[in-house]
Simulated scan of single mutants.
Amino acid sequence: MTSPLTGTAAGVPFTALPPAAGGTAPLIVTWHMLDAPRTDAAFAAALPMNDLPAWRVHLGMPMCGARMVDGSMDAILERARQDPLMAVLHPFVRQAAEEFPAALASLRARLPVDDGPIGVLGGSLGGAVALRILAESDVPVFAGAVVNAAIRMRSVVELFPEEYQYDTESEKAVDSLDFVAKAGSIAARAPLLVVSGELDHPALRTDAQDLVAALGERSQLLPIPGLAHPLADEPGIEPAPQLPLTREVDAGLTAWFRRHLPDPG
């Protein structure tokens, strides 16, 4: 396989995988998890979608990968202990979504990607970024996909050990990241594949089912037997060999995006 290209696009780190045939091709953009694989390089290794005739550009989330503080995730963990919603979950999704248009413009200027609609993919918290792009941006999208995604942020907050004390600001923030409530906007934009590990957190599995039900015929649920929440072994920072169950996810994503790729020309 062709070696990945790495760099930054408008300040956002990325790992780009070119199509095997080379030349100008459609673009699929991804956002990784905060669980393993938790960097753009590791996510690219876990879900390379190598058989797609498209560029796959994996963007780094805030404070991850090349943007880690002191080369570790400790700063994120400390923020999460202080306030998981308002110090990590909400601002990370907001920043990743807000920095995306400039990053996309930079990628288009430097890579031989076509100027048509893009694909979007996100895992876990990165799934919330992809869903926000679908629900709230005007970037043309031909198809989207999420894997073990943060679909209702309230469900993610409940995974933390301490009971969360909401106030007016945090209630507004968590409700802004309820994508079942925004299913109408998402369905109007692009078809969506919702990949859900059958050993993922029960609340996240329920949210996946609810989103697909709300989206109707514009969506598809892909359950993966035996798959828990992570897609790679710890520590999930460096690229690692693809796990067998992750290979099933990769195959499902590849088939989905191939089905929806825009016709050439």
Rank of each mutant, 00 (worst) to 15 (best):
M73N: 12
V156Q: 08
Q165R: 15
I76L: 13
L131N: 06
A45V: 12
A251S: 15
R218Y: 00
M63Q: 15
A9Q: 01
P202Y: 10
S72M: 03
L177D: 04
P264K: 10
M49E: 02
P4W: 12
P19G: 09
P140S: 08
A187P: 05
H58M: 08
P53Y: 01
A240H: 08
S155P: 06
D210Y: 04
L199Q: 14
A10S: 12
S155Y: 10
A109G: 12
I237K: 09
A20L: 14
M73Q: 11
L89V: 12
L193W: 05
Y164M: 07
M49A: 06
L159A: 13
A190N: 02
A143K: 05
K182D: 09
S185I: 01
Y164D: 04
Y166F: 15
V157F: 06
A9N: 02
D167T: 08
L52D: 01
P230V: 08
V93K: 00
K172S: 15
A149R: 07
I76N: 03
L193S: 05
D175W: 00
L104D: 02
A25I: 07
N148Q: 09
N50I: 10
V88Y: 05
G226D: 04
G265Y: 09
Q209W: 05
S176D: 12
A150T: 12
P91G: 04
P191S: 08
A149E: 09
G119K: 03
L131D: 05
D207E: 13
G126R: 03
A188Y: 02
V147Y: 00
R67E: 15
A42T: 12
L222Y: 04
A255R: 15
T246P: 06
P18L: 06
A96T: 03
D83F: 09
T246D: 02
A10V: 01
T15Y: 03
V12G: 01
I76H: 02
V120E: 00
G116E: 07
Q220A: 14
V29H: 02
P241L: 10
M68G: 04
H32R: 04
M63S: 15
A46W: 08
Q242V: 06
R258D: 14
Y166L: 10
G197E: 03
M73Y: 11
A251E: 15
G60P: 06
C64Q: 14
A128E: 03
P191N: 08
V212T: 14
A42F: 08
M153T: 08
A54H: 08
V120F: 03
F160T: 11
R205V: 13
H90G: 00
P18C: 05
G252H: 07
L5S: 13
E248L: 14
R259Q: 15
P191V: 07
V29A: 06
G226I: 01
P26Q: 09
A80F: 02
P223K: 03
A54P: 09
T168C: 00
A44C: 12
A45D: 11
Y164V: 03
L192V: 13
P202T: 07
P117M: 10
D210S: 15
R154K: 13
F160E: 12
H32F: 05
A135L: 05
D40T: 10
P262M: 09
I118L: 14
